[in-house]
Amino acid sequence: MRSIAVLLFCAFVLFVVWFRSQPQSASGSQDIAFCPIAAGQGAAKALAPLRLVGAWQLTGDPALVTGLSGLDVLPDGRLIAVGDRGAQLVIVPPGLTGPGARAGHDVRSLDQLPGLPKETDDTETVAVDPATGRFWTAMETDNRVVLYAADGSRQADIDPAAMEQWPKNVGPEAMARLPDGRFLILGEMREKGTDRTFPVLLFPGDPLGGAEPEQAHLAMPGDYKPVGAAALPDGRVLVLGRDLRFPFSFFSLIALIDPRTIGPAALVRAEPVAAIRGGVLSDNYEGIAATSGADGQLTVWLVSDDNQQQILQSTKLLKLVADPADL
């Protein structure tokens, strides 16, 4: 009976994780609704030293405001999110003032090359150049990195040789552009060996420049997998981890790594910072972004991927703040 129960649970998990509703045509709507989520003290305590200052469920164009997997901050303060079906959302977060707020939301599809298979729309992560607004994405289906201009036009593509052998469905899941211009890319598949690590690539600059990256190994706490990354002003990197637990609960972890520990074949250990352990905030968080304000306080954003199904998952946006000295 226990074996049957395990098999049924595995089948259910596969259905929820891999099932996708039929693609819908974009409506052209630029509206995004923010429905506040009330979180209890227990959720806030688990997030310390990060402080929860806002939580919302997002709804909008059902073809595009869905399946969000990557997140970063644009120079004008708006958020840019990318998704599993090639969505590109520029979001005015609640409370934003100035030019970004006046510019409004921008809901559209990523500029894709004609003739590419539809599955190559599966965009998992995004990294922004804060000086120019250019941004890079990575797609796990064909292990590709793409550069876009600030206006969203596609500029160049590359399939890095270091990612050629990565499996198609667990390829580049997280990417961050470090303050010094280097790029960090994390793979989602576990490597062979007792450490159960994940692949790390540290490029000396833009991956499209063709330089070979340093290759290392990331050890995540417990059964967490790396699904997002965000660089801090001091050069450290927040890594977002995800763990799916029985019967069907998403647990999320925010951890820290220091790129100075990355070298050829190095073992890099992610140190836990904060967690989401069930409750009303729990969801399939895959995107993380970080920015520093004029007061020196750090703002961290999280976005969840609903897998385009609305079954036990939704599109949530969280806003967290912290003193960098506490991390």
Rank of each mutant, 00 (worst) to 15 (best):
A290L: 01
L318F: 08
L178M: 11
S109K: 09
Q165P: 02
A265D: 13
F250T: 05
D180W: 08
L240E: 09
E286I: 10
D326T: 14
R177G: 06
E140V: 14
W301C: 00
P167D: 11
G210C: 06
A103Y: 12
F183Q: 09
L58F: 13
G28T: 05
R134V: 15
W136N: 01
M220Y: 04
L327F: 00
A275M: 08
R177E: 14
K45L: 15
E271G: 04
V300H: 08
L218G: 07
L47T: 01
R20H: 03
L79I: 14
Q88C: 15
P167H: 07
M163R: 01
A81W: 06
P199F: 11
G209Y: 13
I4A: 04
A294P: 15
G104Q: 09
E286D: 11
R269A: 11
L68Y: 05
W301V: 12
R245N: 10
L267N: 01
D243A: 14
L208P: 01
A325N: 10
E271C: 08
G241K: 11
P130S: 07
M220R: 04
R134Y: 15
S109C: 15
T123P: 00
M175P: 05
I276F: 08
R108W: 06
Q30G: 02
A39P: 15
A274S: 04
L320D: 06
V239L: 03
R85S: 09
T315F: 06
V13R: 07
A11M: 12
H217Q: 10
L8H: 05
D129M: 11
P94L: 06
R51S: 13
I185C: 12
V170Q: 14
G54D: 14
P179T: 03
P221H: 00
P99W: 06
A43S: 00
A230D: 11
G104I: 08
D129E: 12
G287N: 05
E173F: 04
D258F: 03
G98M: 06
A176K: 08
A87T: 07
Q57K: 06
Q112C: 14
Q165Y: 02
R2H: 15
D306L: 05
A156S: 09
F250L: 09
D306V: 04
R245I: 09
